[in-house]
Amino acid sequence: MTDESRIIKRCIRKDRSAQQQLFDMYASILLGVCRRYTLDLPEAEDILQEGFIKIFLNLKNFSGKGPLINWMRKIMINTAITYYHKHYKHRFHQEIEESETTGVLTVEEWDADFTREELLKVIQDLPPGYRMVFNLYAIEGYKHKEIGELLDIDVNTSKSQYSRARKLIREQLMKLEKKKKLKTLK
């Protein structure tokens, strides 16, 4: 029996110290997941707490297939989605402007090395809906169909939001790159 599965067993028995152990092991990596979905750290920590509560309460349902971390990550993402639904979805509802030209995609080569903080800022500055779709599609690798179901939006909405999110991101990155070049010139 591996260390992890022992901890899981103890967690199911509501052993606080085991729960804390599990928390200590995975909190930072899961908070990293949450962070991408949120505007700021407090929000991310809210989601983390909520997610861990779900994890602890449902750990006995964990099938054991696949690594625990993947299961926990999924719970975090779902929690983030719930959070988004609760706090943002309708408030930031945006009309979909039809048929935005997808245009010819220019080759994207980024000379500048962006730090993770810069990229995080780019993500968190996105409108909440775009942020969700971008995270789910680009980083998590969900399909638009799945995203549509998760976010309760149309598949096409997911696609168009994604392309617009992408456009916004590209603009931001280009600005950032320009700024960096200027700095290095100085």
Binding site: R16, A27, R166
Partner: peptide
Amino acid sequence: HIEDLFRNAFSGYQVPPSPGLWKGLVRKL
């Protein structure tokens, strides 16, 4: 490119939780 850029940047991204978080979690739990 953008996808790769972000996927790479955030693979294994860790954010240490703030110190009081566990206690709050236990309370809620």
